[in-house]
Every structure is written in C-alpha cells, then in structure tokens.
Design a protein around this nucleic acid. Structure first.
Length: 574
RNA sequence: GAGCCUAUAGCUCAGUUGGAUAGAGCAUUAGAUUGCGGAUCUAAAGGUCGGAGGUUCGAGUCCUCUUAGGCUCGCCA
C-alpha cells in the first residue's frame, strides 16, 4: 500500500466513523483532489449523504470536520459549499515521503515480486522495409509496458516476432532479382534495411506498368515454400540485411527484447489446431475444402482458417503461435502490442481460441494503439510516404546538436554528441508516449517535436539543473529540523506531488497507459521549476537550505525513476 | 451496407468510478534574471466540449438519435 493510500484510507475510515455517529449505515466515502491547490489537498463531496441523513451537505461537513481534525495527519479542514476540504499535515508528510525516497533510491515505489508471468509481444516488423514512425510508437510503448510491468513486480518476457515470410517479402525480393544488379549495402553505401526497402518501393512502381509481377511474386512464395535453393538464398541474404539494419535501429533507440521469434519458423503452426477443431465440430469445411470458423455467436463473422489447398493463412499461424506461446511460457497474461487496424483480427483470434476451449484465451490482450498520421494523410510505405525511424532520429539529433552548440562552448565534441543523442531520443519517446494509447495521432514533422514546454528535453533540463545544484551544494546527510518548519505553497506543491508518484505508477501499470506517467512527470517538473525559480536555496539559513536541497534530491530521484520507466535515460548535464 | 473507434481553445493534446470556475503545451501579447543552469518563471487572451434530446442534486464523462472523419469487414500479413 502506498503512502498516499494509507493517508486516504485512514481519512475514509475517520469519515465513515463520523457519519456512523450520526446514523448507522454503510457509507461509501469518495476522496477527491480539489481543483485548486489553495483549496486543500483532499476534498470530500457530501452530496450523496443528503438523502440518507436528511441534512444539507454543509451541515454534514461541519459535523465531520469536528470529528476528524484531531487526527495527526490532518492540519485543518475547511467547509466549502458541499465539500469538506482537507489540508494535510505538511511536516509529517515531508518527513516520511522524503525519508522513503532517499532511503529506497532507485527502488522507491517499486513493487514486490508477485510471481505473475506475463508475455509481451511488440514491434514485430516485416522484413521488407526499414522501421518507420509507426514502429517507433509501437517500440516505445512496448518498452514502457515492459519496464512498468517489471517495476510493478511482474515477471515479463518480451518477444519480437519478425514477419520474415509472405508475399510482401517476396515483392522486394523479386524487385531485387529483376532490377538489383547485385547491389549490396556496401556497393550502394546504404544502411542494409534501407536498401531492402528501396526495392519494395521499386516493386510498387513497376507493378503499375506490369501486372504480371504479382504472379511472379506469388510464384516466388511457392518456390520459397518448396525450398527452392536460389529463392531461399536470396531470402536469407535480404532478410539478413533487413534484420541487421533493424537491430541497429533498435540499439540506437534503446529497445531490447528477451527473445526474437521468426514467422518463417512458425508458419506451419496452427494447422493441427484447426484440424482438431474441425474434428470436434467447432469449425466447418466448405465444398471447396477450405476450413472456416463461424464467430457470429459472439458478434463477429465467419472467417477462413485454412485455404482450399490446405495451406495456412495469417490467423492460422497466430492460433498456433498463441498456443505454442502458452505451452512454452505458461504465463497468466499475453499482451500483443499491435496497431488498431488489427482490432478485428485480434477479436477473431481470441474468440476462436476461446471456441477451441482454451481457458487461457481470456488472458490474451490486444494492446491496440492508434495510427500515426501525417498532414498529407496516412503513411503508406509502398509509396515511400513514410517517416523513417533512422532519418527522424538523425533530424532530431541535428536539432538538439545545434541547440547545444549555442549554449555550451566549453565541453568536448564527444560529450555534445552524446547529449544531443539523448535529448533527441527523449524528445521522440516522450512525445510518442504523451498521447492516449488508443488514439490516432497527428505527426507534423516541423511542429510536433519541440524542446520547450511539455517535452522530454524539458524534463531532462530539470534533472540536469537539480543535478548541478546538488553536486555543488551537497547531497549527503544533510541535517535539518523540519519540526517547526513552515512549508510554503511552492515547496508543498512539490512534496505533495512526490507523495502521488507510487499511485501513478500503479495506475499506469494497471491501465497500460503511459500518458498518466508522462503527465505526472511533467507536472512534477513544472512544480519543481516554479519552486526553484521563486525560492532561493542558498541565501537562507542552513536549515532552510537543507530542507530545500532535500526536496530537490527527492524530486531528482523520482524524475529519474519516471524517465527510466518511459525508456528515457536521465541526463546529469545538457 | 455492417462492426469498431474518434470529435474538447487557432494548432497538437490531457481530462480518473459522473463533482467545485473544463486544463496543458505550442503559437500570440505583455512581463521577470546581482545568486543555485533563461531549454526557466509570471500573466493576459483564447471554449455553445460536433449537434439535438434524455437520465439526476450535478454530464466533456452515462443513454438514445444525428452529423463528420478514421479503421476494419481477403483463402493478404
């Protein structure tokens, strides 16, 4: 239970006890936060008791007020209209929360291991083109889920399922075969996955003039499945290029996986399951020999599970992969981070698993995220109308670098580059995580990424600033006496926000939602910067200085934990 | 045509189980620095929460209808 939870549930207890003094009943006590910090730290709305107690809200408030004010955690309470607003005792909270943060360090707000196993699949790119902005959203989201689940005590395994097989892969292979002239990344001085992507675009262009190419691509897939040695060799070569290029991108982004799986190893899975379902009468066979499931009983539609020639399709593989994944990991939760355009597919997949009688079907969850749109419309990789992940990082790096060049004359070129890279990545990651996951987002290249305001670099700036403060003025064993310290509103706003951190972490984890954490971190930084700006730390007494330094140290610690959960590396200097 | 999703300030977005005067950032305007980092801080201006009904003490939030946009509906992945 978090510190804040303890305080809130104590207050709930006090209030329901007080209400029971008026009339015995079961009361549900709601605790909220007032719209304005000046109004108090907690607010109790009293509308819902009026009918039971036959009293007006402010009359109830006055009775409760007298009962609860004796409690040591409460400094005072104020009746305001139909609300009872509570001011907490700042000194005792400061003592306990700061002590908690400083003693636990990086483990502050970390939850105990709960022995629940989770499998998380994310990224899962196709090997026919480089990673683009849409993958970036997927990657940072996946990394965030991975971080926060582990921080909250789960045992998590992350998987990248590489889609290295299929007609779309054959398309770039075919274009290379026809027009490649033996080009290599070395000969073209190109990142290897970009070279592969060029041929995917080339295919799309050529296909417009030559519809026969599609037949050839299909033929190539058949050759691939028949283990045709030339085709397999070409596939291995181009796949190798695609994957090694992507791994560079992952490395630069700081995205890691516990395991890579390859669809080329999985594509035969699932057939047995479908045939088993057929024999149990759960599926049906059409006259042309194809096998279908009818999910209309759960509001979905009919869906083919095996082609008439007996080969498997996308959903067949996914059924098999899901079953295998369950058998291997025996986890209690399976999360798939996949774009919202596949909502229907996952509904069908999970419904079919359930129809097959797999009890674990209910533990599968599609974490659906919205598409990334550009001002010109949807990204289309076939037309080359994409924002490429590598280019985007280069662009951001350049912007950050020129900022740093202007500000810092006296640091080495190496350090400038290091900082520019971290600033660029923090901008990108924070930006992408600062949206509601399920919503589509609009990415305007010139305007979207900025370093001012509600951004990653703003948070980085705050951590750098605090770091510089405490390295100059001390961080260890700062003695202070807070017993009769009068915390002002600026100081308290920071302390109170620190108190909320653990709850935000738990909520972000439960809701698989990054925006709650980004909002929190930004708010904490903002409160700190205001406090820092208006409250000189050095010019006051030793005691004041030490109290304020401790607020600063605790803030830095919480910001660092929060940034790391978002997959952003905190900076000591920028 | 059917299913799902979205609509909040000029732009990009937050808004908890329904609660107080609907909030940020950017852009705009006006300010702040003898201290500890100005990638900072303060303030102004900016809204019929797509529209219409309904539920109730109370609706951006829930229900119905409606308008606009997006995604999906393949024996592609």
């Amino acid at each position: 239970m978090s510190k804040r939870d303890e305080i809130v549930s104590n207050i709930k207890g006090l209030i329901s006890k007080s209400l029971n003094n008026i009339a015995k009943n079961e009361y549900e006590v709601v605790v909220e936060v007032p719209p304005n910090p000046d109004m108090g730290d907690l607010a109790i709305p009293l509308f819902s008791y009026t009918n039971i107690l036959k009293m007006k809200p402010f009359e109830i408030a006055n009775i409760i007020k007298n009962d609860i004010e004796k409690d040591p955690t409460i400094y005072e309470s104020v009746v305001k209209g139909p609300y009872l607003n509570i001011f907490l005792d700042r000194n005792s909270i400061f003592d306990s929360i700061v002590e908690d943060i400083l003693s636990k360090g990086d483990n502050f707000a970390k939850q105990k291991t709960n022995n629940i196993k989770v499998v998380l699949e994310f990224s899962s790119p196709n090997t026919n083109k480089p990673l683009h902005l849409g993958h970036c959203r997927n990657n940072v989201l996946g990394a965030f889920i991975s971080n926060i689940y582990r921080f909250c005590g789960y045992t998590l395994t992350s998987i990248n399922l590489i889609n290295d097989r299929g007609i779309h892969i054959c398309k770039s292979m075919l274009a290379y075969k026809l027009f490649g002239n033996g080009a290599t990344p070395e000969s073209e001085h190109k990142k290897s996955d970009h070279l592969v992507g060029d041929f995917y675009v080339k295919y799309a262009i050529e296909e417009k003039n030559n519809p026969d190419l599609e037949k050839q691509a299909k033929g190539m897939l058949v050759d691939w499945e028949n283990n045709d040695s030339d085709t397999i060799e070409l596939w291995k070569k181009m796949n190798g290029w695609a994957i090694s290029g992507m791994k560079e991108t992952y490395k630069r982004m700081g995205i890691e996986f516990d395991s890579f799986e390859y669809e080329s190893n999985n594509y035969l899975l699932g057939k047995d399951i479908v045939l088993d379902g057929l024999s149990r009468g759960l599926f049906f066979r059409e006259a042309d020999n194809s096998v279908w499931v009818d999910n209309s009983d759960v509001g979905l539609d009919k869906k083919a599970l095996l082609r008439s020639d007996g080969t498997s399709i996308y959903i067949t593989q996914d059924l098999g992969t899901a079953k295998k994944r369950h058998d291997v990991y025996n986890a209690s939760r399976f999360i798939y981070v996949v774009g919202s355009e596949q909502n229907y597919h996952f509904d069908t997949l999970f419904a079919t698993l359930k129809k097959l009688g797999y009890s674990w079907a209910d533990s599968c969850f599609h974490l659906s995220y919205g598409m990334v749109n550009l001002p010109e419309g949807k990204m289309k990789s076939r037309e080359g109308k994409v924002i490429d992940a590598d280019n985007l990082m280069d662009l951001l790096f350049g912007l950050a670098k020129s900022e740093i060049d202007e500000r810092n004359k006296d640091i080495s070129e190496d350090e400038k580059n290091y900082i520019a890279e971290k600033v660029a990545l923090s901008a990108l990651k924070f930006y992408l995580l600062n949206f509601s996951t399920s919503k589509d987002i609009m990415f305007i290249p010139e305007k979207s990424i900025s370093f001012d305001g509600n951004t990653g670099p703003y948070i980085q700036y705050t951590t750098s600033r605090i770091n510089s403060l405490i390295t100059k003025y001390g961080s260890n064993s700062l003695k202070f006496d807070s017993s009769d310290y009068k915390f002002n509103q600026d100081e308290w706003n920071v302390i109170y926000q620190l108190l909320n951190f653990e709850d935000v972490v738990l909520k972000s984890c439960d809701n698989l939602s990054s925006v709650e954490l980004t909002t929190y971190i930004y708010e904490l930084s903002k409160r700190f910067n205001k406090f820092y700006h208006d409250n000189p730390i050095l010019s006051e007494s030793e005691n004041i200085k030490n109290v304020r330094l401790n607020i600063s140290i605790a803030t830095l610690q919480v910001l660092k934990i929060g940034l790391r959960l978002l997959g952003i590396e905190p900076l000591d200097r920028m």
